[in-house]
Design a protein around this nucleic acid. Structure first.
Length: 918
RNA sequence: GCCGGGAUGGCGGAAUUGGUAGACGCGAUGGACUCAAAAUCCAUUGUCUGUAUAGACGUGCGGGUUCAAGUCCCGCUCCCGGUACCA
């Protein structure tokens, strides 16, 4: 037997497959198509184990579908624009294009080492002009159709760098690199009106997506029904609010505006001016995420202005507070503290009136002074003029009688209208950066804007630029100066497009990456679209996937599939519903994290309280020693001010109060809790998320097939987990065993029919198991089943009593079942050991024979009062009567039941009988 | 904070969706082979009860439903992902 030389055979087959064009995918209307898509990778530098974890199972699924008879398209490309390239430019003085291209060059080689069935001739790269020409073209279409528009949005502004920062570049309100403060600032930018599609995006009727994803998108869109109500101010303006509870309008006792609301200046009285201005500056220093944290103490300032409650004419004060966001609703709320938690907290904090207007069901009317929280339950309306006596339930919108009555009253009295509000905001697509697709817009001298004509696309990024922090486009005169459609001097737009836009249409470009007349070739699209299976990380649950859905719907409505539909009909395929959703089936994998490292070690001094320590001194230590009175341990987890510290195998909670002394040797000066928190978090992220595991080394040591097999075997795919390098030997041994089994010169002795049937049963049961598991994306159990078959075959070889025919069938089936998982070794065995012609990867997937697979004997469990007391081998087709009789006849059961009275016997033949006796 | 997911032996994970908890693998222990080691092969391996064809306990914590709960219900704890300019 030759040795399993994985290195030699893997590179040989990769070369041969490419020469044979085995993975070229071509339109073939005589065969059913399958478009398998794996999420577009970002060219971060080196392929890491996470890429393997995402892509090799997708490849296995694509190969499985191919063996199931489909013509499969499985393309690959790069999401090549983005922030990291610019960071590299700033930090290491490498041009983003150069950095990106060398990364892609490297990653292509690494991707090829996976042995995936990528069709490289369909590669799409988002930073190449041939690609972003069409990204720009889509923007131009959106602009034409009124989907793209100018608006204002908050940005992280660094006054020091005079530039906009990404959220991840801002830590604790400061620029992560320079440590200088960052403020929130309104800026004019481009948007796509995705909210126009909010309702359609809430429907998932025709797609097979995981429920959690659908639920997250639904919550993200956040549709709520209610009313828009106008409050007149004493300065003569109107404040419009959206409320889901118009029925509680009579209890509105003050209003709160977002600090950035346009009316704040007008409403602010001279006496309050200083306080309001100070508060607005403070609010600008806080991120939106911080502002939404509900358990924060409520802060706010009275503007000095008043509004009139339109339903009862009551004069109510107008405040500003940062818990109201400009980006949600109208940026203003009416506060009904008696019936809303946050408003109640705010009212109590600032001693504002609380006016109950609901009598809780089955209870006495509320007394404002006695309330400890807003009441949000059902009841009867009171002190609400025309609504008095109306029932209020816990239903939302019109389904709640009081809300419905209130909307009718408001509309007929002209103070508001029924309205639907979405939490979803329009998609901000402007980026004040260089390394992205330019927005093809020209700013004319008269202040209007126009799109760059299609025949002048793409607007190409200038290459000769210098990086200092701000986007070099802003200062690039050659780029900036342009003539408008009237031939007058004009200025180019300098914002570039959000990279999410590049990744919102890439699967169309794969269809025909060299097509010059349109983003995609309708002939290809008519066959391949839509994507049948999309796999990728759950971290994209909302944004990327929602944007992609939006994009397709917009394309459909702009008529961009008209030619494709014609081509489909020409081939007799219905175009109905083909372009409402981009991805028919979606499945998510988890993340493989770097190997778990020892955490930071801290020494803690403090007071012990049960299993918890209230710290007075926390020191981050390197060389851990344990002097008297000090607990030294490795930090396992940290949340807020609570550290979980492992000390001699026990987890101890350490609470770090704000006044505790904190010593972090690597940070000079006095340290505090937030620094401790921040420091430990950074340490943890760089350790646990860093690409500690290098797949290239694993491929060198064990081969790509082993790495693939191990990744699919060792984790629950949807969940992922920390990498553990030890287990890979198990996967490698398995492939070596398969190699060995296929090379055995099997010679039966005296053939035993029962043993032969048992082997065949195992083989056919394994077919069913692997078939079902691969269909369901359950790689680990599919491989476990194949390992089980391996064990059965090694035993069968030892006894050598199964027929030669059954053995040969088993070998062939095992190799075929394994082919989608370990493509190289199975191809080698198929063609060079089993002597077959043609690739194993185009063979039909084995089919099981139910009559062979059927069990003849099974273990029946007999329980007494739910506890297992005996196990009996019985025929698989045992009748319920026989099952019960067999169970009761068992001496061990007789002993157990003894003098007890049998009350009931539950029979689930052939697996279980439960005898209830007392 | 909010939204979504998760927690099962020393470790990764299985469990036909209410019916044998721990498949498969790693690791560990003992043995075979070897001068020795590696590799390989054989055996054992949830915990406890001194023995084991026995019993009790056991799926993050506290309750509940059921003949039967890892699975369903109620209440918690902790971890992971997302939170709109990381991709």
């Amino acid at each position: 037997m030759s040795a399993y030389d994985f290195a030699e055979l893997e590179s040989r087959w990769q070369t041969d497959w490419e020469a044979e064009g085995l993975y070229r995918s071509r339109v073939d209307w005589s065969r059913p198509k399958h478009y398998a898509l794996t999420m577009l990778p970002y060219p971060s530098g080196d392929l890491h184990i996470g890429h393997w974890y995402a892509m090799t199972p997708s490849d296995t699924r694509a190969r499985y579908m191919r063996m199931k008879g489909y013509n499969v398209l499985f393309p690959i490309g790069f999401d090549a624009f983005g922030l990291p390239a610019e960071n590299a430019a700033v930090q290491r003085n490498i041009h983003p294009a150069k950095w990106t291209h060398s990364n892609m060059e490297r990653m292509r080689t690494q991707l090829r080492s996976m042995g995936a069935m990528f069709d490289w001739e369909r590669q799409a790269v988002s930073c190449e002009p041939s690609y972003y020409q069409w990204t720009e073209w889509f923007f131009a279409r959106m602009f034409e159709h009124g989907i793209a528009y100018r608006g204002e949005a908050m940005v992280n502004w660094s006054p020091t760098l005079q530039t906009v920062l990404a959220n991840e570049q801002v830590i604790d309100g400061r620029d992560e690199r320079t440590g200088q403060p960052v403020i929130q600032k309104l800026m004019e930018q481009w948007f796509f009106s995705i909210t126009k599609y909010a309702d359609e995006l809430l429907s998932f009727d025709d797609i097979d997506w995981p429920d959690p994803i659908k639920s997250m998108q639904t919550n993200w869109i956040g549709r709520s029904e209610g009313a828009r109500v106008r409050f007149a101010t004493e300065t003569g303006s109107e404040i419009e609010v959206f409320t889901t509870r118009p029925d509680t309008l009579w209890g509105a006792s003050f209003m709160v505006l977002a600090p950035e609301h346009v009316l704040v200046d007008e409403l602010t009285s001279p006496a309050q001016r200083a306080a309001v201005d100070a508060y607005r500056i403070a609010a600008a220093a806080r991120s939106e995420l911080e502002r939404m944290e509900e358990d924060r103490d409520k802060t706010g300032v009275f503007t000095g202005g008043y509004a009139i409650n339109p339903v009862n004419g009551v004069r109510i004060p107008v405040w500003i507070a940062d818990y109201v966001l400009v980006s949600y609703g109208t940026g203003a709320i009416m506060a009904v503290p008696a019936h809303d938690h946050r408003d109640f907290e705010f009212a109590r904090a600032f001693d504002l009136p609380v006016v109950p207007v609901i009598i809780p069901q089955g209870s006495e009317p509320l007394v404002a002074d006695d309330m400890v929280d807003g009441y949000v339950g059902p009841g009867i309306m009171t002190d609400s003029g025309p609504l008095n006596g109306v029932e209020t339930t816990e239903a939302k919108g019109r389904k709640n009688p009081s809300v419905s009555a209130a909307i009718d009253w408001i509309e007929s009295n002209g103070c508001g209208v029924e309205a639907i509000n979405y939490r979803l905001r329009d998609w901000l697509i402007s980026r004040q950066r260089y390394w992205g697709s330019p927005i093809p817009i020209i700013h004319r001298q008269d202040g209007t804007v126009e799109a760059v004509p299609d025949d002048q696309l793409p607007v190409v990024l200038p290459e000769d630029v210098v990086f200092e922090g701000r986007s070099p486009l802003v200062n690039d005169d050659a780029f900036l100066s342009v003539l408008d459609s009237d031939g007058k001097p004009a200025r180019r737009e300098t914002d570039t497009l959000d990279t999410f836009m590049c990744s919102s249409w890439y699967w169309f470009r794969y269809l025909s990456p060299d097509f010059d007349d349109a983003p995609f070739d309708p002939e290809e699209a008519a066959y391949w679209l839509p994507v049948d299976v999309y796999t990728g990380g759950a971290e994209h649950a909302v944004m990327h996937l929602l944007y992609s859905r939006f994009f397709v719907k917009v394309m459909r409505d702009m008529g961009l599939f008209a030619d494709t539909e014609v081509a489909m009909r020409a081939h007799g395929r219905s175009a109905d519903d083909a372009f409402d959703e981009p991805f028919r089936v979606l499945r998510n994998q988890g993340q493989v994290l770097g190997a778990e490292h020892a955490g930071d070690v801290v020494a803690v001094e403090g007071r012990r309280d049960g299993n918890r320590i209230i710290a007075s001194l926390v020191t981050v230590v390197t060389g851990a020693t344990s002097p008297q009175g000090v607990v030294v341990g490795e930090i396992m987890r940290r949340t807020e001010n609570l550290l979980q510290v492992m000390v001699d195998g026990d987890l101890i909670s350490v609470e770090v109060p704000d006044d505790a002394e904190v010593v972090i040797p690597s940070i000079a000066g006095t340290n505090d809790v937030s620094q401790l928190r921040h420091h430990l978090e950074v340490e943890r992220m760089s350790k646990s998320k860093g690409n500690v595991v290098n797949p290239d080394e694993l491929v060198d040591a064990y081969g790509a097939d082993t790495v693939r097999t191990y990744l699919m075997f060792a984790f629950e795919w949807q969940k992922g987990g920390p990498w553990d390098g030890r287990g890979i030997l198990g996967a490698h041994r398995f492939l070596e065993d398969v190699w060995k089994i296929a090379h055995l010169a099997y010679q039966p002795g005296d053939v035993d029919d029962e043993a032969t049937a048992a082997l065949r049963r195992a083989v056919h049961q394994t077919i069913d198991k692997v078939d079902g598991d691969l269909a369901d994306f359950k790689w680990n159990t599919a491989i476990a089943a194949l390992m089980g078959l391996r064990n059965v075959m090694l035993d069968a070889n030892k006894t050598s009593v199964v027929s030669a025919g059954a053995w040969a069938e088993a070998v062939e089936v095992m190799v075929k079942l394994l082919a989608p998982i370990a493509p190289h070794v199975t191809e080698e065995l198929w063609r060079n050991r089993l002597g077959k012609t043609g690739s194993i990867h185009v063979q039909p997937f084995p089919e099981s024979d139910p009559s062979v697979a059927k069990d003849v004997q099974v273990t029946m469990v007999v329980q007494v009062n739910g506890k297992v007391r005996d196990r009996i081998e019985v025929p698989a087709d045992i009748s319920p009567e026989d099952a019960e009789a067999t169970a009761l006849a068992s001496p061990r059961i007789g002993e157990r039941v003894g003098d007890l009275t049998v009350r009931k016997v539950i029979v689930r033949q052939p697996n279980l009988v439960n005898i209830v006796a007392n």
